[in-house]
Design a protein around this nucleic acid. Structure first.
Ligand SMILES: [Mn+2]
Ligand SMILES: [Mn+2]
Ligand SMILES: [Zn+2]
Ligand SMILES: [Zn+2]
Lengths: 141, 141
DNA sequence: TATTAGTTGATAATGATTCCTAATTAATAA
DNA sequence: TTATTAATTAGGAATCATTATCAACTAATA
């Protein structure tokens, strides 16, 4: 994601209103490299703005998805959001729930090769690897 | 997936019972290259065995996931199952809902590179590309 | 300061998945 | 074949993340 000010003014230009709720959610997403659930975003944002409702979190996330400012992945039946919008690999630990990002240059190339072969118009990509992280894998030798 | 007979005997060897319900679900998954939801599998299987319940479909799918005989992907909030268990790309049409498979050799290589870099023990991979299929993309130029 | 359309928050509704359990049955051996 | 028994099933209830609804609120504008 970009800078808060840029995002705010581009949203305002498009006719969206800049509310404290939206700013708080954006601020959190900008500073974290976490992959939070809607519920978790709600918890975090409430510390600063206790009046923010979960409905608003969902609606703001819809808006940001629409604008391609956040991505969405589903892990273990739970939806998680991702402010890292370039094509990358999400490594999901099936034990502790952690999600790490891994940049991988060849993904873009694969994506355009797939578009050509399949004749699909590609708009979005998800690359997920599931397993056990370095801390957890010893427990499962 | 493999041949029905092989699957049946290996399941039986492991102490699982071979019920008509399980055989019907396996047969369907073996012959389709579709990416059906649990609900859809239930509809299909009911034509042959009208007494099969949705609970049993879910439980059988759990078993097959456990045995790594089917994979699971989440698209548009809905869970879909995939009997194509080698690493491949799933192309999801966001208009008509179709899901096409695309084999891509480099995925295995990426996967082992990611495992080395991240120190994760990788057990499962999902590669999904979302967009519009060749038939649908004209409608969205 | 008034106007107004976009936004919010609280709550209800939805729906896919999971849970529960009495009845059924596949597997095995007598 | 029949009896035994533990696994499995059917189906209804429960769960819970997400969506829908709408009256109250407010950001933007003049
Ligand atoms: Mn990520
Ligand atoms: Mn597939
Ligand atoms: Zn871990
Ligand atoms: Zn299509």
């Amino acid at each position: 994601m970009q800078q808060l000010e840029d995002l705010v003014s581009s949203l305002r230009e498009e006719g969206f209103r800049i509310t404290p709720q939206r700013v708080a959610i954006l601020e959190y997403l900008l500073r974290t490299d976490d992959h939070p659930s809607a519920e978790y975003i709600h918890q975090v944002v409430k510390k600063q703005y206790p009046m923010v409702s979960l409905s608003t979190v969902y609606k703001t996330l819809d808006l940001l998805k629409e604008k391609k400012l956040v991505g969405q992945i589903e892990v273990g039946g739970e939806t998680r959001f991702d402010a890292h919008t370039d094509a990358h690999i999400n490594l999901v630990c099936m034990n502790c729930g952690k999600i790490d990002d891994l940049d991988e240059n060849s993904l873009n190339e694969i994506q355009s090769r797939a578009a050509k072969k399949s004749k699909y118009l590609i708009l979005n990509a998800n690359f997920e690897l599931f397993g056990y992280c370095n801390d957890c894998k010893s427990k499962f030798n």
